[in-house]
Structure formats: structure tokens, C-alpha cells
Write a protein that binds this DNA or RNA. Structure first.
Lengths: 195, 195
DNA sequence: ATGTCAACTTGACACGGTGTCAAGTTCAGT
DNA sequence: ACTGAACTTGACACCGTGTCAAGTTGACAT
């Protein structure tokens, strides 16, 4: 940790995230090196593989954004309904910050097993958040009777996928606020027992 | 049309679809040539580019599957509700046949403008189907008041995306029948006015 | 002042996949 | 027997990733 040269490593990571944030299609190792102000080979001194770099960037992003703190309100919500609402909002508002990286990781998951694993990890974490919200609903007796807890989790997880967000946000032109509002409503309709 | 050598061209197209159908990660030009029983260069004699080949394969698939006929029941449904149900079923059951090709096309949409356009075309066609179902609901006064027709179309289109299907089908282990049944229900809850 | 070590640089190269080029082969139609 | 189209073999260029080798720079210790 402290034995590593943080400043160069950090410059690399932030360069990577900057390039990816823009949703730039294909971010090459040389692009990253250039924007970090070092040679392409110096990059390989720090990260021996593109996948490794992307994974490190993902971890770094998690730290910087204090993921746990952002999810706090959802975790401490009293009712299941409140928890669902809060979860959709927290996660939905986190997507814009990670989607570039997510798509880059997704694009290389078929050529690199580590990248696939890192992506799967993160998707699993999101799924856990969905499962917790569903469990809270279930506990309150508010879960719709036509879905098991697992099925409800599957459905919510899929509704909240990065791909769906991207499509609504960019292909359909929804604003971020629209996305959160409409998706919250859609999730409630799909999961909460009819009155 | 008839001036072209159909048999080799056809062998190529079916080889392409066969390889893609399996959801094989990276189907190379040489893989396709080998399974079609010709040399890699002969492949380039027929399709000068990988994108061109994939696009031709997509068109061929549309013909072979008689897309229009499959969508007939949805188009002729009497009520909006019936139309929605039928549309989700028709399209949902078509996804398994095209998803491999769709993902291949999607994977190269950032490196090839023609591939992007071909994919966009097909997605637009799906969106049109969604819009028609929503319009029928709206006509019957059955559309939920908290979504405009456009928003409802956006939402339905996104719920029925290939990515969501892939996630539910493979990551969540849903059967095709499960997918259609649950998705129909979810679409109805999201779009139809509460009683 | 000298030596050493780590971070970094330049420049070359291998590899895999796409696409191109040139020169042959095969064979049906005339 | 000749032509032309479909196809073959084999070489090569390009790009992006990853590797290797040799040199530069500068901080720190002695």
C-alpha cells in the first residue's frame, strides 16, 4: 500500500475513470497513458493487464464514492416500502457514476476471466441490495403474492440493470430524475401487493 | 439476387447463425469459414466485412422466421390488453432466436457504424411493436394515468430488451415460459390503469 | 563524489484478428 | 480447347495488447 507510489498510480486511475466516464467507446491503454502523462510502458509497470487496471479502477471508484455511506439510508429504512424506494433511489443515482466502467468491463468479460469475475462481483452486490429490499417487503407482508422472494429479487435486479438505465437515459432521453421517479413507481407496482 | 450463388452464400449465412445461436462469445471470420466449408478468403468474396456478414445474417434470419406472420396475432388482437399480452408473448418468444446475433451486432456497434445502424433498425422495429400495444391500451382508456404514451412505450421497450431477457434467462435461471409469464404480468402491472 | 535503486523512457518485437493482394486451381459453358 | 467465375493458398499490412531489453533520471546513503 504505502510502499507504492500513490501519486502515479492515482493519476492512472483517475485518468482511466475520466476517459471511461465520458462513455467513450474504446479506451486504449495508450489513451490512458497519455492522459495520465506517462508512457504506455510505465502503465504496464503498475498494471500488468488492461483487465487488472479496470478492476483496480472499479475498486478505487467504490472507495472514492463511499458506497457504504450512500446505501445507509436504504439499510436503515423502517418499512419495506421505504426501503425499496430508498434502494431504487440510491442505486439508481449511483449508476451514472459507474456505467462507463461497467460497460468497459462487460465488453471484455468474454476475453478475460478476471474481468468477468470482477463484474459478476459487483452485479452480485447489487443483487444483494435488491434481495434486502425484497426481504423487508416480505417481512411486512407487502410482497405481491404472485412472485416468490427470489423471483421478485430477480425481477427488481433486472429492472435496475445498467443496460436498462442506459437505454432509458440515452435512447429514450429520460432525465436522471425521470428515471429514478418512474423506475421507483414501476418497481412498486411490480413488487408490492395490490391493495 | 438470383444472379448470386445462393448455395454458398446460404451455407455461410446458416453457418454464421449456427455459431451465433450457441451464444458463442467470439465468432471469428475463420470460424465461420471453417464451418461453412470454405476458405477464409472465399468468405471475403461474399461479404467484404464482418459487419456486412452479420447484417446479412440478421436479414436472412428475419426472412426465415417470417417475422410478420409471428406478429400477426398481436396486430389483430381486439382489446389493448389482449394486444399487450400477445405482443409480449410473440416478441418474448422470438428473442431466443435472435439474441446471439443481437449481442454480436451490439458488441461491434462502437467499431462499425453500419452494424450500429442495423442494430438500431431492429431495435426501432421492436419499439414500434411496443408503441402499437401502448396505443391500443390508450385507445381503450386502459393506460395507467401516471405515464404518457411515450413514457409507457419507453418503459415497455426497456423491460422487453434482449439484455433483460438474457439476465433473467441465464443469470437468474428462469425458463422461457417463466420469462414470458412473469414479464407479461409485470408489463400489465406497469402499464395498465389500476382498478 | 560515487554508487545504487526504483521509477520511468524509448524502441523493438510477438501475437491474434481483420482485411487486402497476387497468383494459382477447378470446372461449367461454349 | 478457351474463357470466366468461384474458389484456394499464402503472403502481408494494420491495430491493439502485452513483453523484453537497454538507457535515463533523480533521490538517498555512504
Amino acid at each position: 500500500m504505502s510502499s507504492e507510489n500513490q501519486t502515479t498510480r492515482l493519476r492512472i486511475l483517475t485518468a482511466t475513470l475520466d476517459l471511461l466516464q465520458g462513455g467513450s467507446k474504446s479506451v486504449r491503454m495508450s489513451d490512458i497513458a497519455r492522459t495520465a502523462g506517462i508512457s504506455r510502458q510505465a502503465l504496464y509497470l503498475h498494471f500488468s493487464t488492461r483487465a487488472e487496471l479496470l478492476i483496480a479502477a472499479a475498486r478505487h471508484l467504490d472507495e472514492v464514492n463511499e458506497v457504504d455511506a450512500r446505501l445507509e439510508p436504504s439499510r436503515t429504512a423502517e418499512t419495506g416500502r421505504a426501503r425499496l424506494k430508498s434502494w431504487v433511489e440510491s442505486w439508481g443515482n449511483y449508476i451514472p457514476e459507474i456505467w462507463g466502467l461497467g460497460e468497459a468491463l462487460a465488453a471484455m468479460q468474454h476475453t478475460d476471466a478476471d474481468a468477468a469475475e470482477a463484474l459478476a462481483d459487483r452485479m452480485r452486490a447489487v443483487r444483494d441490495g435488491c434481495a434486502a429490499a425484497v426481504a423487508a417487503l416480505h417481512r411486512d407482508g407487502d410482497l405481491t403474492p404472485d412472485l416468490s422472494a427470489t423471483e421478485a429479487t430477480d425481477l427488481l435486479w433486472t429492472m435496475l440493470s445498467v443496460g436498462s438505465w442506459r437505454q432509458l437515459r440515452f435512447d429514450c432521453g429520460w432525465s436522471q430524475a425521470d428515471y429514478v421517479a418512474r423506475m421507483t413507481l414501476a418497481a412498486e407496482k411490480a413488487l408490492i401487493r395490490a391493495p
